[in-house]
Write a protein that binds this DNA or RNA. Structure first.
Length: 475
RNA sequence: GGGGUUGUGGGGUAACUUGGUUAGCCUACCAGGAUGGGGUCCUGGUGAUCCCGGUUCAAAUCCGAGCAGCCCCA
């Protein structure tokens, strides 16, 4: 890989730009298997930060972590009819051990409902066993046939999947929205990516769910993308898998279930939204090394500059600063490299600074240079990092909100979508109407707002409008 | 599903039309030296024709099949 700068322009050729920045920022590498990529430390550490945020939220909410096997026997996988139909085309199967053919094929999990619920059925007997709420951090494989895009569409990806069983529908409904809010917070507060929260249409919901909630956002190329989902499974799986319990009034009932997931796709979304022509931009809240200290080394004063740089690094320990004291690269080289890699804040210290007891802060988000007295560094760094986090979010929010337009009919939607925007419409919600909209505009429904009341008739057919729905071209 | 197009060191490319050079260049990497506030310079070095088969005295180049990527259409 050419180690020099990004030479694609984000606005002009998004795909080329995206491919370049993720490689030049040293986030991933390709493997021999199409769609299966290598998370290098740069991207894996981002994932670890996302994990630690969400994991904390889940545990505080009472969810416990567990781990279920990778391989799912075919008979289990097939138990819930709609589910198997939805996933079958992209399931990879293990058929042999060495040269011996297995008696039963084993699915490599595309998601773990089926294998987990087989066990849940054994573990749940009484209302006292509920709620049962387990989460696992793992990898899954979905054998996509569209061409892979790193992070955004890969055959293997990392995620967490939470699977809950409740005694009542009400509790399940409440959890579904509570989890969705965790996901929205993770996007907005950690990744600085604004999202649209809502409910998926019948066509777009998870295979086997009663309904699916999602967060959605828009990429700079005009493609909408689903950020994470929280599904209410009703009693569909509990009936298929026999998850039954005796309730407090001594009646038998099936459990009410949810499943919810957040994947490494989020990393791609964040990069696509914040990056610029110099490289990626990492929001301070998601990156381990929030600061890089670059001493400007001349032959004279070298020792003293390095000493001061070291003392700054020591003082900023809680921001995990990097110290770039490599002697065989020029200062300009280093500036470009750290910008490519998206470190939010660079602190430069050279002889001129030393003379005036100051350093230079350079913000990655807007390139602003700020002189800061050495004694003030400790209190200025968190302040500037907060500003960067906020600025990235507001910029992205402005873009998202500016891309959404109300549409009154199909031709207006077509125009908005061709213009790389998202259309917002009063909609009836029927699957056949959605098919028709997709045929005529290329747009699918993203989700429908929770609290908006639809007015009048459906924008696309003459039925009564039931939802206020976002439509867009999607990934 | 149909059509087009491309595979050359780690990355980007030239040579292919008209078969014959020591497979050229940029970058990266390694060694040494000089530099040093926005991708610094000099010297030397490492490293490549996707796989299989065919044509030919001779194949990166032509032909066939395969594999892989990209684009367009359904």
């Amino acid at each position: 890989m050419d180690n020099k700068g990004v030479n694609a322009v984000k606005k002009e050729n998004f795909s080329e730009w995206y491919t370049q920045v993720i490689q030049k920022a040293d986030l991933i590498d390709y493997s021999e298997v199409s769609g299966c990529l290598i998370f290098k430390p740069g991207s894996y550490s981002i994932w670890e930060n996302i994990q630690s945020y969400l994991d904390g939220k889940f545990k505080k909410d009472g969810v416990k972590n567990a781990y279920f096997p990778l391989l799912i026997p075919e008979h289990l996988f097939k138990k819930e009819a709609e589910h198997v139909q939805g996933f079958a085309p992209e399931v990879a199967w293990v058929t042999h051990a060495g040269n011996t053919k297995l008696n039963e094929r084993l699915a490599i999990r595309p998601t773990s409902e089926t294998i987990m619920y087989d066990s849940y059925a054994k573990w749940i007997r009484s209302w006292k066993d509920l709620p049962l709420r387990y989460n696992q951090w793992c990898n899954v494989i979905r054998w996509e046939f569209k061409h892979p895009v790193p992070f955004l569409r890969t055959r293997e990806f990392l995620w967490q999947e939470g699977h809950s069983v409740f005694a009542t529908k009400k509790e399940a409904d409440k959890e579904a929205i509570r989890i969705l809010n965790f996901y929205a917070d993770c996007y907005e507060k950690i990744l600085a990516v604004p999202v649209l929260k809502g409910i998926k249409s019948k066509n777009e919901k998870f295979a086997g769910a009663d309904y699916s909630l999602s967060v959605e956002t828009l990429l700079p190329n005009g493609k909408a993308i689903q950020g994470a989902t929280s599904h209410n499974l009703g009693q569909n799986f509990s009936k298929a898998f026999g998850i039954k319990f005796l309730d407090i009034s001594e009646k038998n009932d099936y459990g009410w279930q949810n499943s919810w997931g957040f994947s490494t796709r989020s990393i791609g979304i964040m990069i696509a939204i914040h990056g610029d022509d110099k490289g990626i931009i990492l929001p301070p809240n998601v990156v381990l090394n929030k600061v890089v200290v670059v001493p400007i080394l001349f032959t004279k004063d070298k020792k003293e500059i390095v000493n001061v740089a070291n003392s700054i690094v020591k003082k900023l320990k809680k921001f995990n600063p990097l110290l770039d004291d490599r002697d065989d690269y020029s200062a300009g080289w280093k500036f470009n490299e750290w910008e490519m890699k998206g470190i939010p804040l660079r602190i430069e210290i050279g002889p001129k600074d030393l003379a005036s007891k100051q350093v230079v802060f350079v913000r990655r988000d807007n390139n602003e240079k700020i002189n800061v007295k050495i004694k003030d560094i400790g209190k200025e760094v968190p302040k500037v990092l907060n500003e960067i986090q906020e600025n990235l979010f507001l910029k992205a929010k402005k873009f998202l909100e500016g891309s959404i337009q109300k549409v009154q009919d199909i031709s207006e939607l077509k125009k908005v979508v061709n213009d790389n925007g998202i259309g917002k419409a009063n909609w009836c919600g029927s699957p056949s109407c959605e098919e028709n909209v997709k045929d005529k505009t290329g747009a699918k429904s993203l989700n429908s707002e929770f609290n908006s009341k639809a007015e009048g008739k459906c924008f696309a057919c003459n039925a009564k409008a039931e939802y206020v729905t976002y439509f867009g071209k999607s990934y």
